[in-house]
Computed example of a mutant assay.
Amino acid sequence: MFKHCVIVFLVSMVPLIELRGAIPYGVVYDLPLWLTYIIAIAGNILPVPIIYLFARRVLLWGKDKKLIGRFFTFCLEKGEKAGRKLQAKAGRGLYWALLLFVGIPLPGTGAWTGTLAASLLDMDFKKSVLACMGGVLLAGAIMGALSLLGVSVFGG
């Protein structure tokens, strides 16, 4: 059981997969949903302040490097594009839009992309982190419900 808890924690920290993959993993391996939820939330929230404070600096530093430049440029462009799109649609409700962007578990959304977008847009640190954390809680609840539904529907 401990091994699966560690895997849930680590998977929830992986960009693009995050808790969208971690919660179903925990449910499939018969971890209690409440435990899976708590572990996945902790793992997904942990990188948020670090991403906000350091991701832009690291990506800007690495975009001109030979081996990592293309990937870092891709990440910068994805974050900037997501940020501009979010800002254009949200207007004054930008932080609520950020919460929903992170909270609705679709491909390309999540804590990593949302936090990077907030950082690239120079949004307020505290409000951005709180919006991303709220989004992670929402995404966790949605994935928990979908995982339970999937397990009961497919007999797992």
Results as ranks from 00 to 15, higher is better:
Leu59Tyr: 08
Asp122Met: 07
Leu146Asp: 00
Pro107Ser: 11
Asp64Ile: 05
Glu80Phe: 13
Thr109Asp: 03
Gly83Gln: 00
Asp124Ala: 13
Trp112Met: 03
Ala118Gly: 04
Gly110Asp: 02
Thr115Phe: 01
Ser119Gln: 01
Leu99Tyr: 10
Gly110Asn: 04
Leu121Arg: 05
Ala145Trp: 02
Trp96Ile: 14
Leu120Tyr: 07
Leu99His: 09
Leu94Arg: 05
Gly108Tyr: 02
Ala111Thr: 08
Leu76Val: 06
Ile68Arg: 02
Ala82Ser: 13
Gly135Met: 01
Phe54Ser: 10
Phe74Thr: 01
Pro47Ala: 14
Ala90Thr: 02
Ala145Gln: 01
Pro107Lys: 04
Leu60Lys: 14
Gly135His: 01
Thr113Met: 06
Thr115Asp: 01
Gly91Asn: 00
Arg70Lys: 14
Phe72Ala: 11
Ile68Gln: 07
Leu59Gly: 09
Arg56Phe: 13
Arg56Asp: 09
Leu121Val: 08
Pro49Gln: 06
Trp112Thr: 08
Gly83Met: 05
Phe125His: 06
Val48Asn: 06
Met143Leu: 09
Phe54Gly: 10
Ile51Gly: 02
Cys132Ser: 13
Leu94Gly: 13
Pro47Trp: 09
Leu76Glu: 00
Lys81Thr: 13
Tyr95Lys: 08
Leu100Pro: 09
Phe101Val: 09
Lys89Glu: 09
Leu67Ile: 04
Trp61Leu: 13
Trp61Val: 14
Thr73Pro: 05
Lys63Tyr: 15
Leu94His: 11
Ala55Ile: 10
Asp124Gly: 03
Lys85Met: 10
Met133Asn: 15
Ala97Ser: 11
Val136Gln: 00
Phe71Cys: 00
Asp124Ile: 12
Gly134Asn: 04
Gly83Leu: 03
Lys81Asn: 11
Leu86Trp: 05
Ile50Met: 09
Lys127Val: 13
Gly79Cys: 00
Trp96Arg: 07
Ser128Asn: 02
Leu137Gly: 07
Gly93Thr: 08
Lys126Asp: 03
Leu130Glu: 00
Asp122Lys: 13
Asp122Tyr: 12
Val58Tyr: 12
Phe71Lys: 00
Trp61Ile: 04
Gly140Thr: 08
Arg57Phe: 15
Ala131Gly: 07
Trp112Tyr: 12
Lys81Glu: 05
Ala145Tyr: 06
Asp124Val: 06
Ile68Tyr: 11
Cys75Glu: 08
Ala139Cys: 05
